[in-house]
């Protein structure tokens, strides 16, 4: 015996919809809570190996970091950051573009500036067995 979708819906009682909704909300909350590990929330900027600044990724701003070759400009945006300009010859760190995952690093070696994104819980950048 085949049932139309309407007949199946008739089997669900009013309270069942409420429970179904609550269950769906629970699934969403669990997903948000347990799968946010990869989301960065702050940027750590180092110059010549020393901590220069730690900025939250909550408001856009531009930070200028001095180095041996000149000034490195780091642009922070909501949830992401990048090296906007750097005096280094090959521009590797600039060409990496926006970083948004925890553990991502841009290194401007000639000017001795690094930009690293961190999360609430530190993420592994490698695993060994």
């Amino acid at each position: 015996m085949r049932l139309a979708a309407r007949d199946w819906l008739a089997l669900i009682r009013p309270g069942d919809y409420l429970v179904l909704l609550l269950a769906a909300v629970l699934v969403g909350l669990l997903g948000r809570h347990f799968w946010r590990g990869g989301e960065a929330d702050r940027a750590e900027i180092r110059a010549a190996g020393k901590l220069f600044a730690t900025v939250p990724l909550s408001a856009p701003q531009v930070i200028t970091v001095p180095g041996p070759l000149g000034l490195t400009k780091i642009e922070v945006d909501i949830g992401r950051a990048r090296v906007a300009s750097d005096p280094g010859p090959r521009q590797y760190c600039v060409r990496q573009g926006w970083l948004s995952t925890a553990g991502a690093v841009a290194i401007c070696a000639p000017n001795e500036v690094t930009l690293a994104l961190l999360a609430r819980q530190p993420a592994y950048d490698s695993l060994g067995y």
Partner: peptide, 10 residues
């Protein structure tokens, strides 16, 4: 009246 087997199952 309000809660059927679907609630129990969930």
């Amino acid at each position: 009246r309000w809660f059927g087997p679907v609630t129990a199952s969930l």
